[in-house]
């Protein structure tokens, strides 16, 4: 497993959210963990987005997993940055994308498909969901 890059949100001196992009074999894994509650997540995650745009096109991978199973909360101020991270994966990496999400989480079931842009056939045809129980 090779870690490519990561982004982190700090609040009150503690890490409250992080996203990691890593490669294992021919698959890219992008994980989300923690809570997004702050006013402007771009203040912390802009460098991560830039790094994703730089490193993802160079990866010899044939599929991706985007894992939301440990993202416990996202306020509406966090929607666009989630969209930007997800979009970077779809734009730069070919192949199927498996989205791991929590089965009984309203946000992940109702709003996440909007943020993934599943209305677009090109996105929907590449996307599978893996439903998991909350940890």
């Amino acid at each position: 497993m090779k870690i490519l890059t990561y982004g982190e949100i700090m609040d009150g001196g503690a890490s409250v959210f992080h996203s990691v992009a890593k490669v294992d074999g021919e698959r890219l894994f992008v994980t989300f963990e923690g809570v997004i509650r702050i006013d402007n997540p771009y203040r912390f995650l802009e460098p991560y987005l830039q790094e994703l745009d730089k490193t993802l096109p160079e990866q010899p991978v044939s599929g991706s997993v985007i894992d939301f199973a440990q993202l416990r909360f996202c306020n509406s101020n966090g929607f666009y940055v989630i969209m930007d991270i997800v979009e970077a994966v779809y734009r730069h990496v070919k192949g199927k994308v498996t989205v791991r999400r929590i089965r009984d989480d309203d946000w992940q079931q109702e709003t996440l498909p909007i943020l993934l842009n599943l209305d677009e056939e090109a996105i929907a045809s590449r996307t599978d969901f893996e439903e998991v129980r909350a940890l």
Partner: peptide, 15 residues
């Protein structure tokens, strides 16, 4: 990246 405008909608659409 306009702030706001989503919170109330979310409460009905999502929750």
């Amino acid at each position: 990246r306009l702030k706001g405008g989503l919170g109330l909608i979310r409460l009905v659409a999502e929750n």
